[in-house]
Design a protein around this nucleic acid. Structure first.
Lengths: 239, 239, 239, 239
DNA sequence: AATGAATGAGCGTTCATTCAT
DNA sequence: GATGAATGAACGCTCATTCAT
């Protein structure tokens, strides 16, 4: 049992390291993240950091894993939203927004890991975990699509698979968040509320796929409100 | 005239540096790109590289500028495709695909510049150029949307602006290419042909926006073929 | 206490770095001083040097600070020499000689820092310290002058301030040491014992200012001997 | 004769290089002086600079030579001032001031060459030239001292040689100019007019040496005025 | 004779990683 | 287990000098 306490301490510190790392990452990007800074902010020595993570890449990868786990968790809860398939896919869309808004560091960490070529330095094990998380998220969405198909809410043209639809949604969301994070010209272009624009696009996309829409514009807001209350109450409270 | 020859040589080398840099970037990412490697691959000395570019960031930024100029060029040509507005927006979609397929290094360079925090080290001038290119590309798409509206091919719901539509398209494309470049799990998920999936999504998106569609599935292929032939003949030949 | 030992080691190494740096400076001037050479001579790595000093300039400035502190210390002790004002100013002259003879590297370091334009890279803090040391030294001399005036040993013409006298002494000493360090032609010119010549000049200067002289030539030697014994015994022993 | 014109052109460019170099040196110190800058300011190529001077050090040394030649010239002319020995030594003092005031770049160049250890890289020939100039200047002063002795204006104590007196004057002047150029604390200390302070010190020094003074304070100003007019009219006009 | 592109050794600095205490 | 001093390879960048044109 003493062991268990120690283990908990270790886990706590590990989490703390990741928190510090993600803050630095968000503030100063990948180049601003170094072991010295982590150690100083942790008020622990560098050696101690190395007892938790074998190398710098491991920290970033662990961060990405956390991010993906978080997203998977949000998606899973959203998918269980009570309602028709269109309500449920809308709920997942909201989950995706929330992930980006509430955990921007996670989003950034993921992006960095994707763009930097860190894969080589990483253990096969971690790569697997990442892959499984990614697949998991997509499977959640895919499940709702399949439910929609089964329930007749949605009819796909013959040349299109449920995965194509999932890919479309994924692209739209990832792209939109990517633009929001990095574009310097959004206001100039006339997109004052990009998240609203993303919602519109998603709606149009699903409409295009002939996913039976909610009956009125008002219903979408209502669904989102219900999702926020019923599913993401905790996340929104802490914000 | 002797002067001109020398100047051409210099310009050629500048282009060569950028080629080398983009190859390294594509192979090994931002962290793999350093002045020594560029110099070695160029079979020139480091000093020579520095006679062309004042610092490392300048090289990357120049690369991103090239990328954006290239895209703007492809978009502009696509927008002039002879046909209805839906054909023309389809042509721009094809331009976007081509940009990604034919100039993947440019795409990656852009991504890296967006994610790495290089803006600070960069001259205001370069930043402006980038912003203008970005705005230019979006304006091209926006122009086609407006034409579609004017010609009655397209009706936007009252709460939606042409820019919202552009943003949707942009997100979809950027996201899809981002996924294609960095995801490790696409095949596992069942997306064997992601570009095809992107086309479907784009079509669905425009359908959702009630942009009068082409009359048949066959027509889309026909349009794409015509675009490839009439607009992008050169790009596809060199590939 | 273990802590204290480590800290002492670190302080010792810091001092050692400065010793090495000053030796290189003395041997090969500012241009010969670089971090690699310091590291090699120290038989430590460059990284270690950088754990003590943030940049090269810091090392040189620290050296100059040491030099000035040393001089200030010698001057202060000399000014407390028991005797009339002329004896005391003579003692300070001796202190100035000793500084140059016993700590030539300090003198050179100071000269280099003055001539090289390092001020910009330097922290305001260090500049202040240097200014305060300089002012401190001059104040010590100025104090003796004022004492001389108060005691009637010295009468200044109406157009002359005590500071003018201090400036004269300072010029004479600085110039003489500068010549000794850098002139290649002293022996050729017939100045075999430049320090003796400086003493003569100083004496003449003070005589010119009508500072009541010691009664005989012999007395000057006697004063200098007493100063060496009573004030600078330690410095002369270690030499 | 064609040759002679060419030779003159070459000499002119050589002079121009030195002018450019001295300006840079004055502005930005030794570290700011590099071949590129010289070439750019000259509007000639680097290669051309190298046809005149074998290496960077040569340029600086040539500059120092010019400086010393200039000083020697000013001193020689001052020594020929019509008047008693005290007037003539005063005239040389004025020459020394003028050198510092009118040719500060030369002074700085000399200082840099003295403090940087450039001697090794230099040809024996140049070193000789420098030594001869230095000796020349001192000989001029020494000559006036000897004339003063011969004319009974001055009596040196038995242990003192004319060279000792020259050394004293030299020290005073060099030190004063060095302080003026590099000290950051002169105003703080209360020396608003350091050149005036130097004049006082010189006068006191010569008085100390029992060099028969001019009969009144007024006479010193009168002598200086006459020197400025009769000897240094040209220098002061161009200023 | 003039050019200026090319060179490459050298410099100051950073930082992931190790290991003796 | 915790520490943080030590390491040293690596990096971005500079600049005196050379030499083909």
């Amino acid at each position: 049992m003493t062991m268990t306490r120690k283990q908990r301490e270790i886990q706590a510190r590990e989490a703390q390291i990741l928190e510090v790392a993600r803050d630095i990452l968000l503030q100063d990007g990948y180049l601003g993240l170094n072991m010295d800074r982590i150690a100083v902010r942790m008020e622990y020595s560098k050696g101690t950091i190395y007892q938790h993570f074998g190398c710098k890449e491991d920290i970033i990868l662990a961060l990405a894993n956390l991010a993906q786990e978080k997203r998977l968790q949000l998606f899973s809860r959203a998918a269980e939203f009570r309602g028709g398939s269109r309500e449920r896919v809308t709920a997942i869309g909201r989950a995706s927004e929330l992930f980006f808004e509430q955990y921007p560091y996670y989003f950034k960490a993921e992006q960095i890991i994707r763009s930097a070529s860190l894969w080589e330095k990483t253990s096969e094990e971690r790569r697997d975990l990442m892959r499984r998380c990614e697949v998991g998220c997509l499977a959640v969405v895919g499940g709702v699509v399949r439910d929609g198909l089964a329930q007749g809410d949605l009819e796909l043209p013959p040349e299109m698979s449920p995965e194509d639809l999932v890919f479309g949604m994924w692209s739209c969301h990832l792209g939109a968040f990517s633009i929001i994070s990095t574009s310097q010209s959004l206001p100039e272009i006339g997109i004052a509320q990009p998240v609203a624009a993303l919602r519109l696009a998603t709606t149009m996309l699903l409409d295009g796929y002939r996913w039976r829409p909610l009956s009125s514009e008002h219903d979408y807001s209502a669904v989102l409100n219900r999702v926020d209350e019923e599913v993401f109450h905790d996340e929104l409270a802490t914000a």
